[in-house]
Structure formats: C-alpha cells, structure tokens
Nucleic acid binder design. Sequence first.
DNA 1: GTATTAATAATAATTAATATCAATAAGGAA
DNA 2: TTCCTTATTGATATTAATTATTATTAATAC
Lengths: 148, 148
Amino acid sequence: MNRRRTIQRDLVLAAVQKSCTHPTADEIFAAVVSEHPSISKATVYRNLNLLVEAGLVRRVPLPGTWPDHFDRTLGDHYHVYCECCGRVSDVDIPYQADLAEQIAESDGFDVHRHEIVFHGICPDCKKKTMREKSCKGENENGTERNED
Amino acid sequence: MNRRRTIQRDLVLAAVQKSCTHPTADEIFAAVVSEHPSISKATVYRNLNLLVEAGLVRRVPLPGTWPDHFDRTLGDHYHVYCECCGRVSDVDIPYQADLAEQIAESDGFDVHRHEIVFHGICPDCKKKTMREKSCKGENENGTERNED
DNA sequence: GTATTAATAATAATTAATATCAATAAGGAA
DNA sequence: TTCCTTATTGATATTAATTATTATTAATAC
C-alpha cells in the first residue's frame, strides 16, 4: 500500500498541473514522452488513476464524449465542451449546492454529488465559423463517440 | 435517404417506449431478441442511433459510466445515477434554463444545451445497505468504467 | 410482379482503458 | 553502502462497447 515516488508519476502530475486545457490521457502521454521517451502509455493511465485517487488531480468525464479529460483545478466547478473542436473549459458560475437537496426530498435518493456539462461553441470556433461555412468535421481531437 | 419501416426498427422503438428504467442497448437487445430471435445486436445499435436522430428516443450518456442509456421521455429533464446498482432515474426538478445564459455572458461560449447528472444511492440500495454492511461490488449491471 | 436500394445478420475492426507479467528500481533495514 | 522487499514500470495481451464492412434480404415505388 505504500506509494513510492517515481519520476514517471512526478512527470504525469507536472504535466497536468502545467496544462490549462483539460488534457486527455493521450495528450498527457504526448507531453511526458517528450521529456522521458521511455515512458509507457499504461504507466500514464496507471498514474492518472492513482493521482485522481489521491485527490491531486481531477477526472473530467464528459457525457457522450470520449476520452476522459483531466483537470488540475480541484474545487467544485463545471465545464463547457465545445462541440466543434472538443475543447473543454471551466465555467464561471457558482456551484449549485441546493439542487441536490431538492432531489433528496422528491425522489428519496441520497445524492452525493452532481455534474453539469454545457455543450456549445467556443469563441475561437465561432470566429472560424463566420469566415468558413461550418466547422463540422474539423474536430481536431478527432473522436467523438456519438452525435445526437 | 428514404427510411423504410422494418419490424426490427418497430420492435426497438417499442422496447424503449415500454420501459421506464432507461435501458442500455444491451438490455434493449435482450428485450427484443425474445420476440424476434434472429435480430442482430448491430441492428439494435443502428436503429437506436436512427431513432435518436429522428427524435423519437433520447440518448442518456452518463459521465464516467458506461454504457449509454436510452430514454423514452423526450422533454428536457435530468437524471440520477445510483452508484450502487447502476440504475438511472428521472429527476423531478425544473429545467435550469437560466444557467446557460450566465455562461454565454461570462465566457463567450454559445451554449446550446446542458446536462446535469446527479450521483447517489437509490432508495432500494439504501435499504439493502442498512441490512448488509455495504453494497459495494454488487452492482448488477456490472461494468462501471471508473470509480473516483 | 419486378427493380431498386435501404436494412439486415454476421463478423471484423476500432478505441480507450485495464490486466498480466517479467524486469526494474525505490527506499527501509542491516 | 549493500541487500532485500515489493511497488512500479514497460510491453503486450485483453476487454468491452460500439462502429464498419459486406454479402444477403426484403421494403417500397413502378
């Protein structure tokens, strides 16, 4: 159970903390491998899980999109997902603590936490869309799981 | 481009509309295959996508859990996910239309929609937990993607 | 009825993530 | 410092949900 400190773990943590873009595991791997070429992708996934478990990093799972993103900001807050480029940003609205209480009353659920994910178009993509006709298909991250 | 009506499509739609439990594609397959044993799982996935596209069925993707669920209720509403048994229920709180506007102002995002997912323990699992020590691990649906 | 082609069944492929396992190295004890 | 224990690593195989492929089947228009 005792954790050992490793260069790999330090690098993964540093990569998340350095980034303000809510990187995916793959993007973190890309960042770390440039400094430490021998690192394996499995090690990145393993350490991200450990760091999330230790509370040093936050996982940002988005409904309907893959893969998960990671966040250096630990406090309660929400996210916006750009449907055009896949970028994830923090949202600057207060935490809606009262919502959970309403449910406990009405449905008998013990609510531990909640997530709000907003979907829209980021300022950059809005600009692009004005010039070109549409930004559909030029999703740089590539893989959206489904589009409803 | 013209859609043709098929027994398979009708059965998939009926299975979703019959159910009040927000079934997964696999559960819908299980329901349909009992009436129509020759149906293929790919056909269920294909038709679910078409029905979502046509606006007859709603996809309920949950952040951090797999697989997607499907919903016969089309209007705007939110969901609770039971961390114990994996059950998904509708939530009886009003739609928070104003949240999106707050973001557009502060972050410059064009927000189209948002989802709120609550995580907690459903009334049934709460009862079970009182009798037994814990319900960890007896998730009947089986596959949770990650547990933070 | 016949022709056209959307939809199907079966299966292979994909993709993010986890499991496996022999080899390596962190860090406490001698 | 050296040795020992075992957490961690790198490489690879595996998993699971979903999508892609393709030959075949069957809706619907004519």
